[in-house]
Simulated assay, not measured.
Amino acid sequence: MRRLLAFCLIGLSIAIGPFHDAHGQPARRADAGKLVPHRLGQTDVYILSFGLWGPQSVFESEARGAARILEANFDGKGRSIVRVNTKRRAGATPQTLMAAATAAGKALDPAEDIVVLVLTSHGGPEGIGLVAGRDALLVTPDNVRELLDRTRAENRVLIVSACYSGIFARELADPHTLVITAAAADKPSFGCRDGATWTYFGDAFFNKALRGERRLDVAFEQARGLVTQRERREGFDPSNPQIAGGEQVLARLKEAACRAGAPTQQAGRAARSATC
């Protein structure tokens, strides 16, 4: 188990190149993705989910799983793009991430709709890592702000599953930007094992809490409790997940969640009743 902590702490050390050095070239047309357009008079949720660290499959699995659950909870079918790096394929490069954000910006209504951006990777005190093939880059809060701005959405949700990811809450949260992170700015998170389906935070938040509760703030509190219990049980210093900002976003998410219907059977009905 201690080896898992070591991977999360030292994994980012190879990601030293700046993000901007790599996204100056135009993305291939196929990378942009096709999204269902905004529905007039409704709050639609567009989901961008990126697994950035190619050498370990857990980040691909988490990005795909998170997108599926968010789609189900927020009526997002046809409104999501998933980009991942794997041991064999560089699918989440700066170019493809920017292209995905641009595609969302063309499909959504900036004033009515919401973008949910999920990033899962190794993290460090200055940002999170992106490893695509031989390219190893650092993605900073400023880079993520640029991605969010590229979507044109006035209301945004950022979910970062990585060590030290609290730096994104500190830098990016505001009334129109809800930020949820797996750890505080000075804490590692856990579960980044090659072959795993989820990290500890991803399992607690996406796989457990959000399957029965659409309200992101309520699901976060449930997940924080689950993660803290697991970390203490396994002898780790708690990662202290963070939530900040988003006062204007949560009310709009409620509309989309109510329209989506119950995510599960009895638990889903209880969640729907509490939310709508």
Rank of each mutant, 00 (worst) to 15 (best):
G11M: 14
P18F: 15
H20Y: 13
G24N: 09
A27R: 12
R28T: 11
G33L: 10
L40C: 06
Q42P: 06
V45D: 01
I47T: 09
F50E: 04
Q56M: 07
V58L: 09
E62K: 10
G65P: 02
L70T: 02
G76L: 02
I81R: 08
T86D: 01
K87N: 03
A100I: 12
A100W: 10
G105A: 04
K106T: 15
A107E: 12
L108N: 05
D113Q: 11
L117P: 07
L117Q: 05
S121Q: 13
S121V: 10
H122E: 02
G124W: 01
G127Y: 09
G129Y: 06
G129V: 04
A132R: 12
G133F: 03
A136K: 02
T140S: 06
V144N: 06
R156A: 08
I159Q: 00
G166I: 09
G166A: 04
I167E: 00
A183P: 01
T199S: 13
Y200N: 12
F205T: 04
F206H: 02
K208A: 05
A209K: 11
D217W: 03
V218L: 11
F220V: 06
G225S: 09
R230P: 03
F236T: 08
F236R: 15
F236N: 13
S239W: 09
Q242M: 14
G246E: 08
E247Q: 14
Q248K: 15
Q248D: 14
V249M: 15
V249G: 13
A251W: 14
L253H: 01
L253D: 03
K254D: 14
K254A: 15
A257M: 12
A262C: 13
T275S: 10
